[in-house]
Computed example of a mutant assay.
Amino acid sequence: MSTPLNGSVLKAFSILGLFSKDRPEITANSVASELGTNVATAHRFLLTLESIGVLVSYRRGYFALGGTIEELGRLAESVNPISTKVQPIINEVAREIRESVMVCRLGRRGPTCIAVAVSDQPISVKTDIGTVLPIDVTAHGRLWLTHMSKADRAHWLKGTSSDLDDELAKIKSQGFAQNQGDNEPDLGAVAVPVFGHDGKLAMTVSVFGMLSRFNDSLVSRSVTSLKQAARAISS
């Protein structure tokens, strides 16, 4: 039996997720409206977060991000290997290939984006960190499936009609996976595995963009660049 998640923690992070550059302050009314709770409960959460420095209130009823969040953000930037090591590597791939690049880890709900480098193309594709991808119709997902045990693969594919045996065998043989509009009709991607020091799949990294640009030449160049990036990340 899986361990139940703490609802209060999830609610607190849902509240923090309401902040953006366009909305630097929130109120109990906005929290209640957008998260489907009552105003009293929303206000209690806001006051609790304020009491530990996560939020600060500069005017009555309005809450902004506080100093504790700023400190954690600076700490994350200084110690997070994604920021200090992975990001510069994928930035270089995006510059070289001129398409966007994404890194995923396998989360509880599927391959989850943990880093992105956006293409400088006039028309480019981007995705947000935290985005969860389908496991059966994306290049990232199929790579994870390729390197799973049969039992784990069956668990992840439960409830889908996917018959991927031939496709996964091909991916294992060639060392990369492709998405040719399988997830979204106009988007293409090619992904390679990133192995840890234990030899197990640790991350997946892809080049992705408009499907119309994903000809054989771009795929070949992307695979070469991605494999170099994967080795650099693994090292």
Score class of each variant (00 low, 15 high):
residue 1 M to T: 04
residue 4 P to H: 14
residue 6 N to S: 10
residue 8 S to Y: 15
residue 10 L to Q: 11
residue 11 K to E: 10
residue 19 F to S: 01
residue 20 S to P: 09
residue 21 K to M: 07
residue 21 K to F: 05
residue 25 E to S: 15
residue 28 A to S: 14
residue 28 A to K: 15
residue 31 V to A: 13
residue 34 E to W: 08
residue 35 L to F: 09
residue 37 T to Q: 12
residue 41 T to C: 00
residue 42 A to E: 03
residue 50 E to N: 12
residue 50 E to M: 11
residue 53 G to V: 08
residue 56 V to S: 14
residue 57 S to N: 01
residue 59 R to K: 14
residue 60 R to P: 01
residue 62 Y to E: 09
residue 67 G to F: 14
residue 70 E to G: 05
residue 71 E to F: 10
residue 72 L to A: 14
residue 73 G to L: 11
residue 79 V to A: 11
residue 81 P to A: 14
residue 82 I to T: 15
residue 88 P to Q: 04
residue 89 I to E: 12
residue 90 I to H: 05
residue 93 V to A: 08
residue 94 A to V: 04
residue 95 R to M: 05
residue 96 E to Q: 14
residue 97 I to A: 01
residue 99 E to N: 08
residue 104 C to A: 15
residue 111 P to E: 12
residue 113 C to E: 05
residue 114 I to K: 03
residue 115 A to W: 07
residue 117 A to Q: 06
residue 120 D to N: 03
residue 124 S to I: 00
residue 127 T to F: 06
residue 127 T to P: 12
residue 131 T to N: 01
residue 133 L to C: 10
residue 144 W to Q: 03
residue 148 M to E: 07
residue 148 M to D: 11
residue 156 W to M: 10
residue 157 L to D: 08
residue 160 T to G: 05
residue 163 D to E: 11
residue 163 D to R: 10
residue 164 L to Y: 10
residue 170 K to L: 08
residue 170 K to V: 02
residue 174 Q to W: 03
residue 178 Q to H: 08
residue 179 N to T: 09
residue 185 P to L: 11
residue 186 D to H: 02
residue 188 G to W: 05
residue 188 G to N: 09
residue 189 A to Q: 07
residue 190 V to Y: 07
residue 195 F to H: 06
residue 195 F to W: 08
residue 196 G to C: 11
residue 198 D to K: 09
residue 204 T to C: 13
residue 207 V to N: 02
residue 213 R to N: 02
residue 214 F to I: 00
residue 218 L to K: 08
residue 220 S to Q: 13
residue 221 R to Q: 12
residue 224 T to F: 06
residue 224 T to K: 12
residue 229 A to K: 05
residue 234 S to G: 13
residue 235 S to W: 01
residue 235 S to D: 06
